[in-house]
């Protein structure tokens, strides 16, 4: 089985399986508020394949990163 690594989500350290995407890590941690829409609604992944941009989060300071296309890395800082 894949090893575990630690990432930080909104400052909290969570242990996740290596090899999964950031979107999966967040959903697994029951984080369903990925981004806030222009009228203030919470949004979470829709397409799971890099098309809809609903899964955007900030990763290591890079805003608007599509979390469904990016694999977790040790020490990654994710902000929703």
């Amino acid at each position: 089985m894949a090893e575990c690594i630690v990432i930080r989500v909104n400052g909290h350290a969570i242990s996740v399986r290596d090899g999964i995407t950031v979107a999966v890590a967040l959903l697994q941690a029951d984080e369903l508020h990925f981004r806030t829409s222009v009228t203030g609604e919470p949004r979470a992944p829709l397409c799971g394949m890099g098309i809809c941009f609903e899964c955007r989060v900030t990763i290591n300071g890079h805003t608007h990163a599509r979390s469904c296309q990016i694999l977790v890395r040790e020490g990654m800082q994710v902000v929703t």
Binding site: V24, Q28, L32, L46, C47, G48
Partner: peptide, 21 residues
């Protein structure tokens, strides 16, 4: 349909295939 938890059908499958339990 914009509520978190509403996924594409293939979308949810894709997420499950990338490790979502």
């Amino acid at each position: 349909w914009t509520l978190p938890g509403v996924f594409g059908a293939g979308g949810l499958q894709a997420l499950a295939k990338s490790g979502l339990s």
